[in-house]
Amino acid sequence: MSPVIEEAVQARLVASTPQVEIVPATLHYDREDPFTVRMAFPPPATLEGTEVTWEFSRELLATGITEPAGAGDVRVRPFGYGRTVMEFHAPEGTAMVHLRTAELRRFLERVHGLVPAGREHLYLDLDHDLTELLRDAC
């Protein structure tokens, strides 16, 4: 099985106008960084006109589909039937997107199949990470 999982999802971008815009986004999980999920938004969906990627814990995503989770830059909570809201807080403002909970559950099932919850530490290469951290210290 590949050590990387990617899943394309449709995010409904919630704006201050009544119009809701659907933008593509990609969820990304790499077994070599077992605690982290990345969500990338393409250039047309961002203020900067460049791809923007947010990183957050897979535990935050798993918790947030059933109950409100997060107190920092990324917050996740259930929203009505079959939807999950993700909020991304930055100095420029807050972006809020609605996602299908079924898509998030499917992604998390694949992630947990690759690295079971509670076993993430077994996939860390601490020797390599420590070497990289100390490489420029001498």
Rank of each mutant, 00 (worst) to 15 (best):
V4P: 15
E6P: 04
E6W: 12
A8D: 15
L13R: 13
P18M: 15
E21I: 15
V23K: 11
V23R: 14
T26D: 12
L27V: 01
H28A: 15
H28M: 13
D30C: 11
T36W: 03
T36V: 08
V37A: 02
R38I: 06
M39E: 06
F41S: 02
P42F: 14
P44R: 15
P44G: 15
A45Q: 11
A45K: 06
L47M: 14
G49Y: 02
T50P: 08
E51Q: 14
V52K: 03
T53I: 14
W54C: 08
E59F: 00
E59W: 01
L61R: 01
L61A: 07
A62C: 01
T63V: 14
G64H: 04
I65S: 06
I65F: 08
T66Q: 13
P68S: 10
A69S: 06
A69V: 01
G70I: 03
A71Y: 09
A71V: 09
D73H: 06
V76S: 00
V76C: 05
V76M: 03
P78R: 15
P78L: 15
G80T: 08
R83K: 07
R83S: 06
R83D: 08
T84P: 09
E87W: 05
F88I: 03
H89P: 15
A90H: 07
P91K: 05
E92F: 10
E92W: 11
G93V: 10
M96I: 15
V97S: 01
T101H: 12
T101M: 10
T101G: 09
L104S: 00
L104C: 07
L104V: 06
F107R: 02
L108T: 01
V111K: 04
H112V: 04
V115K: 03
E120D: 04
H121V: 03
L126Q: 07
L126N: 08
H128F: 12
D129I: 05
T131L: 12
T131A: 09
L133C: 11
L133W: 12
L134M: 09
L134D: 13
R135I: 09
D136R: 10
